[in-house]
């Protein structure tokens, strides 16, 4: 009798465990391994620093990126249907955060691995503090990032450079070519 009830309890426990595991599928970010991880989009080695980001797909694959901009590029190319969860890292602590709940600071001149200039923070206050400290930038939520243009800073730098250093090195021809090049760049990828 005792044995039976024990068995029954065990069965219930197993069922509960199984169902809970199935129902609330939780996606967890993987650690960055500097030896083997490379950005799915740009091929650069992913460093174990706060710029790294990650997508866990619904079938459990981990896709790592060296810059939030590259993660965005992946979503543009592949859509978000297969995405289970997206993670970014807090710029101060390096802790993994959900993409949706993080706050972001953006400025074209912030230095990030692929120069998209978007940096993630755990709290709104921390993001604001960073912007104040740098003396430039704007605060964005993940919702704002949907409408973000994701320009890399060279596009803007180009304009400045052209005006500042145009003297001898660049003819007007090359200027036009460069601009054309940049125009097609976004569409290609």
């Amino acid at each position: 009798m005792k044995m039976k009830s024990f068995n029954a309890m065990l069965l219930v426990m197993v069922i509960v465990l199984l169902t809970s595991a199935c129902g609330a599928k939780e996606y967890k970010p993987q650690e960055i391994n500097e030896e083997t991880d490379k950005c799915v989009i740009c091929n650069m080695a992913v460093k174990d620093d706060p710029y790294a980001t990650q997508i866990i797909t619904k079938d459990g694959q981990s896709l790592k990126f060296d810059d939030i901009g590259c993660m965005n590029e992946w979503k543009v190319q592949n859509g978000t249907e297969t995405v289970g969860a997206e993670f970014v890292r807090d710029h101060n602590s390096g802790n993994w955060l959900k993409y949706e709940t993080a706050y972001y600071a953006y400025d074209a001149e912030y230095v990030t691995p692929m120069a998209y200039g978007v940096i993630a923070f755990e709290s709104q206050a921390a993001a604001q503090a960073y912007i104040t400290e740098q003396g430039k930038g704007e605060l964005l939520s993940s919702a704002d990032l949907k409408n973000h243009k994701w320009e890399v800073n060279r596009d803007m730098m180009d304009m400045e450079n052209m005006e500042m250093h145009n003297e001898s090195m660049h003819s007007d021809d090359s200027k036009e070519e460069m601009e054309m090049g940049h125009g097609t760049e976004g569409k290609d990828s």
Partner: peptide, 14 residues
């Protein structure tokens, strides 16, 4: 030595 090694890599290079 690295799993992602290469001699020369061109990416978005024209």
């Amino acid at each position: 030595e690295n799993v992602n090694s290469q001699g020369i890599l061109l990416f978005d290079a024209h």
